[in-house]
Design a binder for these strands. Structure first.
Lengths: 348, 348
DNA sequence: TTGTAAGCGTTATCAT
DNA sequence: ATGATAACGCTTACAA
């Protein structure tokens, strides 16, 4: 019984690709030996190894990864889920993970949940179905969804968020400390009335950052709140609202919204930092190229990405889950912050 | 003969996931029927369909995608290769392709070649090994490498570049026309001495853009050249060199280098556009938030991404390769361009 | 409409 | 050190 057509209507001329069987025949060895040679298993004599390699080269053989996966139970594939691929914070992470994974012969399946909690769960599941593990930046998924993922029995690593309900491995930067130090800088400059630009509601990072800002109320600082978001447009949109508060400094959820705000302020003739100080969070590259350059919190992205891959690598190798890597973040003082107008005036 | 352990030392408690066989037994039907139900094949009676679905639900069954791939010869996976994931131009493309692919039940394997021609070939090959098709932004790969990819017999789509040597399907924006119109705008403003900031050497897009700029030499415009690159840092780095040319306008290879240049100029007290006009290319979102906002060339990224996926989709469905989609780009005039100093002075 | 069983291209077990 | 061969979980002719 001969079988289907194979060519799938696909595209090119493609004579069928050789199988391990054909290589074995050509080298006059068993398929097992060919498999061993390509697995780098030591237990093959030099002579046979050479013969196999020759035959494989002649035929243009390359192992069929899908068959390897099915038989071996390993895919050499990890999934990576982010809330927004267009955010420099995330693509920096992806880019670095991509490289480290490649060095370990892993490929990466990427998905973008577009900040949707529902998508986080679904995409996560389907990614994990195909891969050996999942790196997820899922700031909002609830315990049920997460538990379901874990139940697939494969390593799942949470990034930018600590989860305790189902206990999960995670890599995070200490957002609370970073934001606290940043706002302290504002207070030290003399600011007593600060507006916080909220990020995406209920995201873990947002909660940490807000907690840090809010903490200054106890120290006599007036802290107003505005719901903005995490994009350039979000920051731009709330400019009027910000001015209406009468504050002297704005701490934004992230660099994107801070940059959007600064641009909108410039258009209205509001000078930064003379009239109003503005800070961001993440230290994305663009923040160094705005005028004025943006005061922000640097998160060690390279280290975070490396820790992410190393941790995932460990989980894939059978390490027990639950590890937590915490990285420090720190304020980067640039031109977008200064003394509040009254103080500056007195100083003159 | 019982076989290995299965659990891979992986992580969780995971009772083994159910197979199609178990579902078939539970529903008291054959595996073929279960397969048909999950394939959505019409030829199953309503009664059996329901029984299968019930059993599957009870057992928590989900098809094993790797086995499906091996047996069916389709992976529902496409590879996507970009030269630099950190460039907004590319992540916009990826993000959109990700979504459209997901809607068609395809997943996307992403790789970043880091502008290395060698990596373009290798990564492309290994992506294509696992997937049904490859979307590649490979501005530099030579004919040999490309032919090798095509020989894998799977659809390959080139983006941002037209390739004729091996004939390839491609989606491009007409960079020449866009850049030409942009420079014409500069000339119309009165500029007669323009400096072009070269992008990555030998990239296809770079060649098209440069060809457009160079064309103005025939019209009596002095065009100087500086080798910069495609990043923010590249633009920043060449600021002094730019000033040394004495030109009145700069056309950069892309927005990133243009923004870097503008920032460096601002630091040196050079006013844009009063002292020097600067243009970019791509119309990345950040260009709208710099001060002044950047004059640039808009490339229809959404349309390009849609065309990219639709074309790939067609190839996957067996359409013949070789199609070429060309999209128009057009100048976007913002604040970073104005009349050259002399002309402006006369006007006053 | 439904079932049977032959692949799909490997890996890993067992025997030699 | 090498070979034979049963899985791996599914799809799809082909038979009924």
């Amino acid at each position: 019984v001969t079988r289907q057509r194979r060519d799938g209507g696909g595209s090119a001329e493609g004579r069928k690709r050789p199988t391990i069987r054909q290589v074995a025949d050509a080298a006059d060895v068993s398929v097992a030996t060919v498999s061993r040679v390509f697995a780098g298993s030591a237990a093959v004599s030099a002579g046979l190894t050479q013969r196999v390699l020759d035959a494989a080269g002649r035929l243009g053989y390359a192992p069929h990864v899908v068959a390897q996966s099915l038989a071996g139970g390993r895919n050499n594939l990890v999934g990576m889920l982010v809330p927004n691929l267009a955010d420099p914070h995330f693509y920096a992470l992806i880019k670095q993970v991509l490289h480290e994974a490649e060095r370990d012969s892993y490929q990466v399946l990427v998905a973008d949940s577009d900040e949707s909690p529902a998508a986080e769960g679904n995409l996560g599941t389907s990614l994990l179905h195909r891969s050996d593990g999942l790196i997820m930046c899922a700031p909002r998924s609830g315990p049920a969804a997460l538990r379901e993922l874990l139940d697939l029995g494969k390593p799942v690593l949470m990034v930018d968020r600590v989860v305790t309900d189902p206990v999960m491995s995670s890599v995070v930067v200490d957002a609370h400390a970073g934001m606290r130090d940043l706002v302290r800088h504002l207070v030290d400059l003399g600011h007593r009335h600060i507006t916080y630009l909220h990020g995406p509601a209920r995201s873990w990072q947002e909660q940490e950052r807000w907690r840090a800002v809010r903490g200054f109320r106890k120290r006599g600082v007036r802290v107003d709140e505005i719901n903005a978001g995490a994009t350039l447009e979000d920051g731009q949109r709330v400019a009027a609202e910000v001015l209406a508060t009468g504050c002297t400094a704005v701490a934004a959820h992230n660099d994107l919204s801070a940059i959007g705000l600064v641009a909108a302020l410039a258009e209205q003739g509001v000078r930064v930092p003379e009239d109003l100080s503005v800070t961001g969070y993440d230290d994305i590259p663009f923040g160094r190229y705005t005028s004025p350059p943006l005061t922000t919190v640097r998160v060690p992205e390279l280290e975070a990405a490396s820790a992410t891959w190393q941790t995932m690598r460990g989980l894939l190798d059978g390490h027990r889950p639950g590890a937590r890597v915490v990285l420090r973040s720190e304020p980067v003082l640039r031109g977008s912050t200064g003394s509040p107008p009254e103080v500056a005036a007195v100083a003159r």
